[in-house]
Amino acid sequence: MVRTAIGGMRISETVEGLERYPINIRYPYDDRTSIEALRDLPMVTPSGAQIGLGDVAEITVTDGPGMIRSENARLNGWIYVDIAGRDLGGYVEEARRVVAEQVDLPPGYSVAWSGQFEFLERAEKRLGMIVPVTLLLIVVLLFMAFGRAVDVAVIVGTLPIALSGGFWLLWMLDFDLSVAVVVGFIALAGVAVETAIIMQVYLNLALDKRRKQAAAEGRPVTMDDVLDAVTEGALLRLRPKIMTVATIFAGLLPIMIGSGTGAEVMRRIAAPMVGGMATATLLTLFVIPAVFVLVNRIDAVRNPKTLSPTPGAMAHGHPAE
Rank of each mutant, 00 (worst) to 15 (best):
D224W: 05
T247K: 11
R211T: 10
M243Q: 10
I242D: 08
M223N: 13
A215H: 09
T222M: 07
V226K: 02
K209G: 14
R239A: 05
D228E: 14
P240F: 03
M243I: 10
D228T: 03
T222H: 01
L235T: 15
L236F: 11
G233N: 00
R237K: 13
T231E: 10
D208I: 07
R211H: 09
A246S: 14
L238K: 05
E232Y: 08
E232N: 09
I242M: 08
M223E: 07
K241W: 09
T231D: 08
E217D: 12
D208P: 14
A214H: 02
G233M: 02
D228Q: 11
R239S: 05
T222A: 14
D208N: 15
A246H: 05
T222E: 09
M243C: 09
V226S: 02
V221H: 00
V226R: 03
I248T: 11
T231H: 06
V221C: 13
M243P: 02
K212S: 13
R239V: 05
L207Y: 11
A246C: 04
A234D: 01
A216F: 00
T231M: 10
L207D: 01
M243S: 12
G233T: 00
V230Q: 02
A246Y: 12
I248G: 00
V245D: 13
T222D: 12
E232L: 15
A229K: 00
L207F: 14
L236E: 15
A215M: 02
M223K: 07
T222R: 14
M243G: 08
K212Y: 12
E217V: 03
K212H: 15
D225V: 06
R239I: 00
E217R: 14
D225P: 09
I242H: 06
F249I: 12
D228C: 02
T244V: 03
Q213I: 11
R219S: 10
Q213P: 05
G218K: 01
K212P: 06
L238G: 01
A214V: 13
R211I: 12
K241E: 15
A246N: 01
E232V: 12
A234Q: 01
K241P: 05
V226M: 05
A214Y: 00
I242E: 03
M223G: 15
D208Y: 14
T222P: 08
P220T: 09
A215Q: 13
V226Q: 03
D208R: 13
G218V: 08
E232R: 08
V226T: 11
V230L: 00
R210A: 07
L238M: 10
P220W: 02
D225L: 06
R210D: 12
E217H: 11
L236I: 09
K212C: 12
A234T: 07
A234P: 11
R219W: 07
D225G: 05
D208C: 08
D208S: 07
Q213K: 08
E232I: 14
K241Y: 11
E217T: 02
I242Y: 14
F249P: 03
A250N: 10
K209M: 15
L235I: 13
T244L: 08
V245Q: 04
L235C: 05
K241D: 10
L238V: 04
L235K: 09
A214S: 08
R237A: 13
V221N: 01
A246P: 06
D225I: 00
